[in-house]
């Protein structure tokens, strides 16, 4: 349990990297790159978990690092890449808000997140205090990514990135949730992706596109 400030600094760096990747995803309009950024975010998350596991000696964290690596670095990006190839979605159409505007909103979100996280950080005596603020920011930025995109695929990557933020929050504040919960969440996410895979093909069969604008013009009798 070496309380070396160096480890703490490293962890803070990784947290900052996580936030940076969220911003990169917010600005990215190429769907394939979005998926790579997501995989990278999973990698950073995995590294942070390993670091924390090494510092605290919690075996649970080793398991959850392995889970992160398997699900978020390997399985999900692989599924997403395959979907992109087979569905042929490469670019997102014009986002609802232009990129500088989105970035500006993103910065405001980060400020807000740190404010919101203040009372929680004060309580969490564990690893890093800034981490919770960053986790909240990652969640909300992912949310922003989702609402400013039109392609179903980009929205899904945003959704998964939100889950990364949640996971980072749980890990940094409490050394992870109980194992059975983590396993369950990972299973849900995987199943969600499989369901979506089926779903996307159905949507494309019907509409010849994954553009959500087209989808919304078919609202039932309202």
């Amino acid at each position: 349990m070496g309380q070396t400030p160096f480890v703490m600094q490293l962890l803070d760096t990784l947290a900052a990297l996580l936030l940076l990747l969220s911003f990169a995803m917010l600005a990215q309009r190429r769907v394939a790159t979005l998926v790579e950024l997501f995989a990278l975010q999973g990698g950073v998350l995995c590294a942070a978990t390993l670091l924390l596991a090494w510092r605290t000696g919690e075996e649970n964290l080793l398991l959850s690092a392995a889970l992160t690596f398997g699900v978020k670095v390997l399985a999900l990006p692989w599924l997403l890449r395959r979907m992109i190839r087979r569905l042929g979605v490469y670019w997102d159409t014009d986002p609802l808000l232009n990129i500088p505007g989105t970035m500006l909103v993103g910065v405001l979100i980060v400020v807000f997140s740190f404010g919101l996280a203040q009372p929680i950080s004060a309580l969490a005596s564990t690893a890093t205090r800034s981490a919770i603020g960053i986790a909240v920011a990652v969640i909300l930025l992912a949310f922003l990514t989702m609402i400013t995109r039109r392609k179903a695929m980009s929205q899904v990557v945003g959704f998964l990135s939100m889950e990364n933020g949640l996971f980072f929050g749980a890990m940094s504040a409490t050394y992870g949730m109980p194992m059975v919960v983590e396993l369950g969440v990972a299973l849900d996410v995987l199943v969600a992706m499989l369901v979506l895979g089926v779903f996307f093909f159905q949507i494309r069969e019907q509409f010849d596109s994954l553009d959500l604008d087209r989808l919304e013009s078919h609202q039932g009798g309202r």
Binding site: F199, Q202, Q206, L212, L215, Q219, G220
Partner: peptide, 12 residues
């Protein structure tokens, strides 16, 4: 089309 939209909305 309406059912697919409903499913997507429900999911997301």
């Amino acid at each position: 089309p309406a059912a697919l939209e409903a499913g997507w909305k429900y999911f997301i």
